[in-house]
Design a protein around this nucleic acid. Sequence first.
DNA 1: ATAATAAATGTAATTAATACATTTATTATA
DNA 2: TATAATAAATGTATTAATTACATTTATTAT
Lengths: 239, 239
Amino acid sequence: MLQNPNPAPAYYQQAETLLVAVDCIIFGFDGEKLKLLVFKRKLNPFAGAYSLIGSFVHPSESTTDAARRVLFDFTGLQDIFLEELHVYSEVDRDPGARCISIAKYALIRVTDYHKALSDHYDTEWVALDSLPELVLDHNRMVADALQRLKQKAQFYPIGFELLPKKFTIPMLQRLYEEIFERSFDARNFRKKLLSLTLVKPLPEKDRTTSKKGSFLYRFDYKKYERLSKKGFQFSLFKI
Amino acid sequence: MLQNPNPAPAYYQQAETLLVAVDCIIFGFDGEKLKLLVFKRKLNPFAGAYSLIGSFVHPSESTTDAARRVLFDFTGLQDIFLEELHVYSEVDRDPGARCISIAKYALIRVTDYHKALSDHYDTEWVALDSLPELVLDHNRMVADALQRLKQKAQFYPIGFELLPKKFTIPMLQRLYEEIFERSFDARNFRKKLLSLTLVKPLPEKDRTTSKKGSFLYRFDYKKYERLSKKGFQFSLFKI
DNA sequence: ATAATAAATGTAATTAATACATTTATTATA
DNA sequence: TATAATAAATGTATTAATTACATTTATTAT
């Protein structure tokens, strides 16, 4: 990286600064439905209304730092899937101030979340198909994030971030059916998944959904990384 | 959208503001090679160095407005493909000031650019495989944009934004070979393209590259929009 | 012992992708 | 005016991937 040869503070000083926020679209899957974690605001502005979980970005942190900070504060979770969605910067998007928001979406394992200790009891999981009205442009952010989730999940194995680390094939199928709003043939789904050889069978069964029980599997992230470096393209179905 | 019921300026006033910039990764294709439009800085900071084309975001404009403003200033072009790439916000990314940059990539038709009158003669097209060193984290931005271009071009018909509106099939194939750094079989490429029925044949030929001449086609954006709303997924090849 | 339930399994038919060589239209040159 | 040179255009057979579809299995509760 070139180092600045002639620092010219005047160049920067004549530019105007803006408020910069991050807002997190936090998805979860309870085994049945896709859910969104929202925040019921206790304080102004927008006291009593629902909003995404967010914060202003401090000068001493990157936008990723800020997002991870609020995710930790609100869920107690670290090391979760987090990816930038889009910058929302319309001049009139926030009537309170000129503020741009960098939206990021996160995928969390609801099972881990339940265990995690959070000091926030003002968060709520809501079903994506019956979202409340959210403040500002947050409903738009959620709609965009959902579209991105669909796009991304079609060619990247990010669905596994929403399941417990040990999952069954029927669980994964239900998640895919929920994300893509369509059904899959159980035989073909299983066959295609196993043909990728990216899930490792475990000698254990999950017995919460049937008497027979269903074998548990684990996604092999290392193998996926190796293959994708060689040009492998993950996909479980053709549109 | 909920309107702010209790404006609370104090909430905003206690937050710190940041400098926000946009930087544009501008791709072009000259029929042979992928090119990047860069700016040779005449003034400080970084006088004499190469940089992406960018600007600070004014409080009175969105980040898209800002990007379109600089694109127009530097190329004279409007209505070009422009999409957000990523927010670069590492605390130490700019030694001159705490400044985040929203990188956007643009695809332009070099043929149009040559015609456009621009009052900037300090821009240069450089080949992507022999990029100069750029200021700050701009080389990283270009690398990320190139990766995004590959990803996006695989499932969206954005390659057509880099070609003249009337193009030949061999031209398109050369562009794809350049983007994906691989070769395609001319028969299979043509067959696949025509099977999508998204390019309309014209009764004209381009004779700049052969004595025989090659028929010109036009991409049918309206048909593509219609089909993609029904779930159609554009793709010219399997990885 | 039987009923009930979700999990697990295989094959044939269809569709899509790949590999591969010759002819065509045209211009420049002998 | 015949020939050489050049890039464009074309078809088929093989292989791989996707789809459609119905029965058996393991287990628990009755």
